[in-house]
Design a binder for these strands. Structure first.
Lengths: 352, 352
DNA sequence: GTATTTCATATTAGCGTTAATATTAAAAGC
DNA sequence: GCTTTTAATATTAACGCTAATATGAAATAC
């Protein structure tokens, strides 16, 4: 092994990695010949290639991508910015993206922002400094995207994973507005008039309100809650407020399934019947929704499709930089309702 | 903006990024002066520094870390290899690690292996090629770590996030053997004699068996199941087998909480009472365990502590390479039992 | 048998940065 | 007033690699 260098040990004990230079010295060929050989060039005869390869293997040689990137001007890394990796859908997205990128030979540099614009800006700079070949971003704030403009000016490949179709960037996202609309409409059609909303910021709130408007129901601000988080705990803690309303809510739409499951957990502890006393629909249709008791109705999220399209589009932008000048491409996926027991599919409520 | 280059547009439309060279040309200073100025060196007077900085800002300059890394011999990136990012504990670990590394100025390159040794080996080479400054690894197979030996020879900073204390690497992990032992012992103390195990490979199986042995209970191979996965679905599908046994199992220990929750979902569908007819303990104590009905007893997993110690140890190894030659450091965290309703805390079973 | 082609390999330059040194001009010393 | 110091800036080399070009020897041409 060349791990040990023939120098006085107090000077240097370990050689961190082997370089083309080391293999060149060992084999007697020049650095360039070694480089060509290891990349399988026809310009160097097979016998020589084999000789060089075997030394490389002995030395446990791995090319230095840092040096290589400096020459090739591409790092074969993609930056992924997510708001939070603990949410199941973002986890799923991260997972799909990572697998897809790996297949294409790209490594994923992952940064989370906790929905902070400051973090997001810093992440952008970090990734730019790292010279990632492109970025996939689940933006912290769908309305404030100005810090991405600089990327646009430099034709930096960028695809957003969420946002509005008005965003001036390539975008592939679920239609949250439509999802909330469909869920709300479904609850209205079941006869509900007091439909509460947990954590409706942005598109989901719009869809909810539009559905109410389209069915001539009044938008009651006291039915709209902001639990301050998206997991079980926040749903659990926000649930009691539903029943302090006058008249109480008879249905609930939540921005995530965890919020819904948390609320349901509280109801069960109070012996409040789901869906009889409260019909519930969540968002994202995570696996827990299928296995909860009662099964949780939810608005679907197609993580596989979003990831696939986003990676595909990013590769397009990377391979044909001219495309960046063209019109941005926006794909908005229509979500479905996955109806289970929690929304009381076959249970029309009587007018309260 | 310098985004647009003053060249015939058919030759080149966009400048991808600005370099020290561009700022040097614009300001009239040399590249080196610009470099020093932007790094805030006292060697260049403040007035000059300000002038250069403002041009840099105008040009939206971000240093090229690829070039910088080539000189400094460190990339300020850490490679993280996980078996699967969809498992909640690994998600949590990834999240903590990412936040901690970001605070320290490191970016995280994340690769998942799907528990495949082949993928793991490839991941190792990819990360080595990317010249990451260190690696944190949740190994695919706790028994087969030979491919990490090469890293050891080159004193590559590496910390494992799971495994046995016999592993010849720095390690920070939960004591799965002890966790399984505690859970099994608890069930035995409640009077159970037919305790089943879902997905017990490795340490968890050992702990389970040791507990049985220590309490003079026979190890019945027919009670040990391999559901072929760790999520709801596999638990749901594996559950019926428990009741086809003669005599049927009265308690169940599962390798993950999702397996347990899936099994419980099936039992509820069959009106099998938990914990009366089947006491259940899961592994990892995820949030869903607290909010499920009945509450799921579980063996705790301290993702925050593991992540923090692992990152801390990795930084030690990076900053003092000599430490790598010293004895490896191993931290095995003792898990607790988070007891809830599913195990029937106050419910001693009668001898069946 | 010399000119030309081909093959195998070596040399040079450059990617964007930093570190070490070099240069020049102004300030200080006595 | 001429040397010595200090301040401001420039030049050079290197990091490990790849691409373009150059070299030299062997093979082929006619």
């Amino acid at each position: 092994m060349n791990a040990y260098v023939l120098e006085p040990f107090w000077l240097r004990v370990f050689e961190v990695a082997s370089r083309l230079k080391d293999i060149a010295k060992e084999t007697g060929y020049s650095i360039n010949t070694v480089s060509l050989a290891l990349r399988g060039s026809e310009r160097v005869p097979e016998a020589t290639r084999n000789k060089i390869s075997s030394v490389a293997k002995k030395f446990h040689y791995v090319p230095n991508n840092v040096a290589r990137s400096l020459v090739s001007q591409q790092t074969m890394t993609i930056g992924v910015i997510l708001t939070d990796i603990t949410s199941p859908i973002l986890t799923a997205v991260a997972h799909y993206i990572e697998r897809l990128l790996a297949q294409l030979g790209y490594a994923m540099v992952l940064i989370t922002t906790d929905k902070s614009l400051e973090h997001e800006k810093r992440a952008l700079d970090v990734l730019r400094a790292q010279q990632v070949d492109g970025m996939l971003v689940f933006p912290a704030n769908h309305a404030n995207l100005s810090h991405f403009e600089a990327l646009k000016e430099t034709a930096y490949p960028l695809v957003l994973l969420a946002g509005r179709r008005t965003a001036p960037f390539d975008l592939i996202a679920m239609d949250d507005t439509l999802g909330a609309y469909k869920a709300t409409r479904h609850l209205i059609e079941l006869g509900h008039k007091r439909i509460a909303l947990f954590s409706g910021g942005g598109e989901k709130l719009e869809g909810y309100q539009q559905a109410l408007r389209d069915h001539d129901l009044e938008i009651d601000q006291s039915l709209i809650f902001e639990p301050g988080g998206i997991d079980y705990e926040h749903g659990y803690k926000a649930a009691p407020a539903l029943f302090r309303l006058e008249p109480p809510a008879t249905a609930l739409l939540t921005a995530t399934d965890y919020l819904a499951l948390g609320a349901i957990a509280w109801c069960k502890a109070q012996s409040i019947k789901i869906p009889e006393q409260l019909a519930v629909i969540g968002f994202d249709d995570i696996e827990a929704a299928k296995y909860s008791d009662p099964g949780l109705s939810s608005v679907t999220y197609d993580a596989a499709r979003i990831s696939k399209r986003a990676v595909h589009r990013l590769m397009e932008l990377i391979s044909q930089p001219s495309a960046a000048q063209k019109q941005t491409e926006k794909t908005i996926i229509e979500p479905d309702l996955a109806l289970r027991e929690s929304s009381g599919k076959h249970l029309k409520v009587s007018v309260s």
